[in-house]
Design a protein around this nucleic acid. Structure first.
Lengths: 231, 231
DNA sequence: CGCCCATTTGAAAATAATCAATGGAAGTGG
DNA sequence: CCACTTCCATTGATTATTTTCAAATGGGCG
């Protein structure tokens, strides 16, 4: 049936795309092997990959779109711990159960791996084990960076850092922000309003240009780096 | 010579102590093996184990005392990413170089491991590799918890969480705080003054009692948990 | 075309930071 | 052993940043 063919094409496209992204982000080559035990899946906007507390029997890799990892606090406040973008792995930190929920920010394509199979592969192939450990190390370093940001930077410094990080991921001055202002706020420990005001000010100062709500262009990178000047 | 004997005693005592702590904190038993490739070292108050940017060729484990892991920001602000207490490993997240400086908060005893040797051991003994990965996973989860704290909790909530965490580590209502108020502030993303005021308020409300500046007793744990009510 | 939801903008309120002064304990040196 | 010094903690008053509350704007989708 043509639906099957379309699906096959989607899968091949996803694999190609994801392979190129793996290369781009400099992910260790040992990791490509594990895709053989993965399944390509697509999810729509706001659907959940898993919820905090679910048994953690799967890993995921983002191929297309963006995923947010979030925790709900007792009084309803929401914290977003990470935005996962193409090439990123999800779930490496989980023990028995997931420590946060993962939701599709946009329509997404992901690869889903049975944890069991990945671990079996890691035992067979030391390269795979090494790659997984390396990714965990990178995640830890990133987490420490973000702690500094959340603990000690002003609103403007956080926004500037965020924009620079997003820009570095695509290697382009054109930055796509698929998430809402509220998402960004929950990610940076700010309110939606503060995020919006910071964007407006950057726009007013000619540092960025807004193509649309979800797409900005960095006009003056030096100014952004000045604002984010940390570490 | 008697100095040698004293040193030997110190080392044995440190190993015993550390073994018991390993047990208490539920650290995987596979880890005890690696102590055979470690060296016991003592450092005085404020001495550095290593500095941010140093080649990361060693791991450490705290046996006695406390260590702070800190980053210096461009403008002089300081962020403390972690307090390492007895039983804690330091350096697992480092790639080529350390991502933060580690300094003795008090006089400390630590075990120092050549990274090369630990890694060799991990290849020989799958248990060791598993333990190291498990510790990294726990570190990652802890880092995510702290992000939530730094991003979304009020000053009082942060202090309450901090006290509860410290109390849980010793399993006692009597909590030792070897670090300064400034250290605590840099750890929680607050100023020394805010930390001090929060302590005063808790004292005034009869939630805690101060035996000395560096030792508090938790009188009303429920109240603290109420104040920290999160996740 | 019109509705709905996210974003933007404005004004007021709250929290924590900063500035400033005092108090106290630990350590130093005579 | 005591006095002195220094550093850290506490407390108070003021300021600044961000949040909260509220209203208006605008873009996307049915």
């Amino acid at each position: 049936m043509s639906a099957d063919i379309a699906l096959q094409n989607e899968i091949f496209a996803a694999r190609r795309l994801h392979a190129s992204l793996t290369f781009r982000t400099g992910a260790p080559d040992g990791i490509a092997v594990i895709d053989r035990v993965g399944t390509v899946v697509t999810l729509k906007h706001d659907e959940a990959l898993f919820r905090e507390g679910d048994p953690a029997d799967r890993y995921f890799k983002v191929v297309r779109g963006a995923v947010r990892g979030c925790k709900l606090l007792a009084d309803g406040r929401r914290h977003i711990g990470d935005f996962f973008l193409p090439g990123d792995f999800i779930g490496l930190d989980a023990a028995e159960t997931y420590g946060f929920s993962a939701e599709a920010v946009s329509d997404i394509t992901i690869i889903r791996y049975a944890r069991r199979k990945v671990e079996a592969l890691a035992w067979q192939e030391p390269r795979v084990a090494k790659s997984l450990v390396k990714m965990m190390r990178e995640d830890l370093c990133a987490a420490r960076e973000r702690m500094t940001l959340l603990g000690h930077l002003t609103a403007m410094e956080r926004i500037a850092s965020f924009l620079l990080t997003m820009a570095d991921r695509t290697g382009d001055t054109r930055v796509s922000l698929p998430m809402t202002r509220t998402d960004i706020g929950d990610y940076l420990g700010l309110t939606m309003e503060t995020v919006s005001r910071a964007f407006s000010r950057l726009k007013g100062d000619g540092v960025i240009e807004q193509k649309s709500v979800h797409e900005v262009v960095i006009v003056d990178r030096d100014a952004l780096e000045e604002l984010a000047e940390v570490a």
